[in-house]
Amino acid sequence: MTPLKIELKTSPHLKQAGSVEQIMRHVTYALLPICAFSVYHFGISALALIITTVVTCVLTEHLFAKLSGKRSSVSDFSAVITGLLLALTLPPSFPLWMAALSGFIGIALAKVMFGGMGYNLFNPALVGRAFAQAAFPVSVSTWTVPGHPDRFTEFLPSTLAMPFTTPAPVDAWTTATPLAQWKFEGVHVETWSLFTGMTPGSVGETSAILILLCGLYLIARGMMNWRIPAAVLGSAFVTASVFYWMDPTFYPTPWFVLLSGGLMLGAMFMASDMIASPITRSGIWIYGILIGFLAVIIRFFGGLPEGIMYAILLGNAMAPLIERITQPRPYGTRKRRDAA
C-alpha cells in the first residue's frame, strides 16, 4: 500500500458555502444596477462621481495597508462597496475633488482608524457623506435636473471644479428634490414617479423600485438580514402614518415618506451594514425601528430635508448598547445573561 498522507483536522469537517469575499462581491453586484440607472438618469457626471469615490476608497485602503505593513485587504471588495455607496448618496453635480476627499475621510477615519474590516463602529460611506455634509454644505445640497438632454455629452459645470474651490450653482441645471420641495415649498410630488425614480435627488437614491429589487436579490441569497430593512421601513411608515393621521394637510403621506429621499437606499444598503449593526435578533429589530423613527423625526422637525444619514449613524452608535441588552438566553438558563 502506498504511504498515505493523513491530515489531522478538528471538527466540523464540513463547511457551509460562502465566504466574506463572496458576500461582499454579491453586495457589489446588487449595487451595479442602481449605478447603471443613475448614469442613465444623470449622465456622465454620475459615472465620473462613482469612479472617483470607488478609486479613492480602494486606494486609501490599499495605502494604509501598505503603510502599516499588513496584507492589503482590497480584494475583499468592502472598500469598493463603500465607494459605491458614498457616490450613490451624493448629488450628481458634486465636485469630484470633494467626493474624493469624502471617500478618503470615510475609509481613513471610519474604517482604518477603528482597526479595518470588521471593526468599524460606523458605516464608512455614511461617515464620508457626513463629512461632505459638514464641509461642503452648498455643493451637497445642489440638485440636478434629471434626464437632461446633454447629460451624456457634457459634464455638469460643477463636477470638474478645481480642487479647493466651491462652484456656484448654475440655474439651468439645478432644481429641488421632492423632499426639499415638500419641506420648503409644501409641494407634493406624485408618488409613482418616486417609485420609478424619475425625480431629482442623490445619484442612486431616486428609484425606490430598483433599490427594493436589488435588496431583495441579496436577501434571497441569504447575504442580507431582511429584518433590518423591514424594521427601518416599517417603523418609518408607522411613524409617518401617525403624523399624517394627525394633520394630513401638512404632513406628507406615509408612502411619500417611504419612497422619497434616501430612506429606501439607506434602509436596504446602509442600515443593513452587518459590521455596524447589532448581531442579535431582537437587537436588530430595535436598531431598525430606532433608525426608521429617527429618520422621519429628523425629516419632519430637523433643519435638513433628509434625516436617514444621521438616523443610521445614530443607530450605529447605539448598536453596541442595543446588543448588550439583547443577548440571547442560553439554553438551560432562566434569564438573559448579563454580558460584559
Binding site: 475583499d76 479595518g116 474590516m117 470588521g118 435578533r281
Partner: peptide
C-alpha cells in the same frame, strides 16, 4: 478573515 458580524453564528448556535 476578520469577523464581519454577519450574525450567522448567533443564528446557528443551538445553545443560544
Amino acid at each position: 478573515q476578520p469577523c464581519i458580524r454577519c450574525g450567522r453564528c448567533v443564528e446557528a448556535c443551538p445553545v443560544g
